[in-house]
């Protein structure tokens, strides 16, 4: 961070320049005061009063200069702390004892070093359902009931399609269950000749060897096939009714 150091040096130089102006400003003030004394000696009261105003303004200028110097000192400190990480208590390596839990002005515990778990510190993040205004505590059937009148004006076909889409998971689950009772699974390692049977492959000389690999189906169940078909069918049905409605409407 060479350039940050340069910046710090530049600010320090500015501060020194601001400090250097202090002497001349004070000497201006001294001269003005001297002039006032001379004026009073000469009996020029009006001019002396005006000169007093000058002295006041020079004093104000001096206090402004001091403020400027202080501000530059602060800027220098800020650059130094940017270089070295945060200075002061609480900074890593400062050696200060940092309380694990800090207290707000209100008395509420503030985030210290993660002493308080996040779910207690902050309000819970709203879910998508809460944001869209649906009570997340109600079940799917109640949700369907809440929304029951929403598509009352649609045609019967369209309503059936929509409810099929909404309840696709239940429909699929039921189908899977029903189909599972009437189907049987083929064993994965179905082998009618027994494990001792050997296949002999003859390789003609001069030809590269032929590798035979056995492709095995892994646990495909009729219920899965049926239920996924139901899911696809529900979507296709809804899409078809929408398409037809669009054509009707123009």
């Amino acid at each position: 961070m060479g350039s940050l150091n340069d910046l710090a040096a530049k600010i320090e130089a500015d501060r020194a320049a601001a400090a250097e102006v202090a002497g001349p400003i004070n000497s201006s003030k001294g001269q003005a005061e001297h002039t006032i004394t001379a004026m009073i000696g000469l009996g020029l009261e009006g001019s002396a009063a005006r000169m007093r105003k000058v002295v006041d303004e020079v004093e104000e200028a001096e206090s402004l200069r001091a403020a400027l110097e202080g501000a530059l000192t602060k800027a220098h400190f800020m650059v130094m702390s940017a270089i070295q990480g945060n200075m002061g208590p609480g900074a890593p390596g400062s050696g200060a004892v940092v309380p694990l839990t800090r207290i707000d002005a209100d008395g509420a515990p503030k985030a210290g070093l993660d002493a308080i778990p996040r779910h207690l510190r902050d309000d819970p993040v709203p879910t998508g359902e809460e944001l869209s205004g649906v009570d997340p505590s109600i079940g799917p059937f109640q949700k369907e009931h809440e929304n029951a009148n929403a598509d009352r004006r649609r045609g019967a076909l369209s309503r059936f399609g929509r409810s099929a889409v909404r309840n696709t998971d239940e429909l699929a689950g039921t189908t899977k269950q029903a189909a599972g009772e009437f189907t049987f699974d083929i064993e994965d390692d179905f082998d009618p000749w027994g494990s001792q049977a050997q296949a002999i492959v003859e390789v003609p000389t001069g030809q590269p060897p032929v590798f035979v690999s056995r492709v095995e189906a892994e646990g495909i169940k009729a219920g899965d096939l049926l239920s996924s078909t139901i899911v696809i069918a529900a979507f296709a049905f809804e899409a078809a009714t929408r398409l037809s409605r669009k054509k009707e409407n123009g």
Partner: peptide, 24 residues
Amino acid sequence: MSSIDEVISSLSANSNAVTDLQGQ
């Protein structure tokens, strides 16, 4: 009033110094 002139020139020098400082 040469004394007042001196005050003014001193203040003017200060002002110049502050102008330099502003540039810095």
